[in-house]
Simulated assay, not measured.
Amino acid sequence: MEPSNRFQAGRFHAGRFSGSVAETDQASYSVFISGLSDNPTYGPTAEIGVQLVASAQGFSGAAPATIAWQWRNSQGDIPGATDATYVPGVQDDLDAVYPVAFPSDTYPTMAGAAYAVRFAPPTIQTPLDDLNVLAGSGDVNVATDSGFAGENLTYALAGDLSGLQIVANSGLATVATNGGVQSGSVSVSASNSGGTVTQDFVVTIGDEPFNVDIGGLQNGIATIGSTVTAEVVWFVPEDEIARIRWRRNGKVISGERDPSYVVDPSMAGNVLSCTVTTVNNGAKTSDTFPVS
């Protein structure tokens, strides 16, 4: 069970500060903690690696000559943690820590509020690239951990594709390609005690070495005067392109050999396609699209 913040009579907190109040007939004061982090999931949190500072304020009489401190967790005194400051470490993860004040003079001992210790929540570092692979080409590994930043992360996968696996401690995902042609979105979650973050990438398993798409269309139509572009989607390691040919009604348009093509007015009422020829994996022609 995860620890929760410990509430005591008279304790209050505002922003990043919390405190407990000791009261007797003759003496009272408040114990505060600063340095708490605002965890988006759990609220005020003692974050691993972030210094906490305890203070005693609001004495009902003259301030005491000295104040000794001891930080504690669920097991009792934390060895060596006898300063007003304490930096939670990995050993404190999901425990709760709090300071105890020992003022001199007539003031009583008082414990501050306890807060659960957590890692900083993970973040997305870079988007994960979509994956295009050829059916039957063997298992493909994806280092999904490169897309996240954070400490003590564990990883999980979700998706409708068959043959998905991930190593929880490393984020190394495996995509099996022996399940035939399929495509779908894959979600990768990275989690630690501070929270969870998720991002998606698309896996496409194709039955040919590559496909040719045409970019720059408007609702599936090549409009006069617009620039369209031949886009190659590789399912094998990228090959060298030997030539590109744009086509009107299946016939080569003379002189149009660049990846981009400005749709000529003479194309109106015809259909447009593009053939890409590679050095090692043959040729492929895109679908045809009407020109308007």
Rank of each mutant, 00 (worst) to 15 (best):
N132F: 12
G159F: 12
A158P: 01
Q91T: 13
G150V: 04
V181S: 12
S162L: 12
L128F: 07
A81L: 10
V53T: 15
T126H: 07
S162F: 04
V175N: 02
V53F: 05
G61V: 07
L131T: 10
G195V: 03
P99Y: 11
D130L: 06
I67S: 02
G89Y: 09
I78P: 15
A149S: 15
P103M: 07
V87D: 10
T144D: 08
V53I: 10
G76W: 06
T177P: 01
G180R: 06
R118S: 08
T109I: 14
G58I: 03
G80C: 07
N192V: 00
A65P: 01
T174H: 06
A101L: 10
S187Y: 08
S183I: 03
S104C: 05
A56F: 00
T154P: 01
V167M: 05
A173R: 00
V100Y: 04
G163N: 10
Q57T: 13
A56H: 01
S170R: 07
P88E: 02
L164E: 04
S191M: 02
S55V: 02
D93Q: 05
D83H: 07
W71N: 11
A120S: 11
M110D: 10
S162E: 13
G89R: 09
A62P: 14
S183Q: 12
S104R: 08
G58H: 06
G76K: 12
N73K: 02
S162N: 14
L131H: 03
D105W: 06
A96V: 08
A173V: 00
A113V: 15
S193Y: 04
F119A: 05
A113M: 14
A113Q: 14
A158D: 13
P64E: 14
S183D: 04
R72I: 13
G49T: 10
A113S: 10
Y107P: 04
V140P: 00
D93L: 05
S162M: 04
S162Y: 05
A54V: 10
T109N: 11
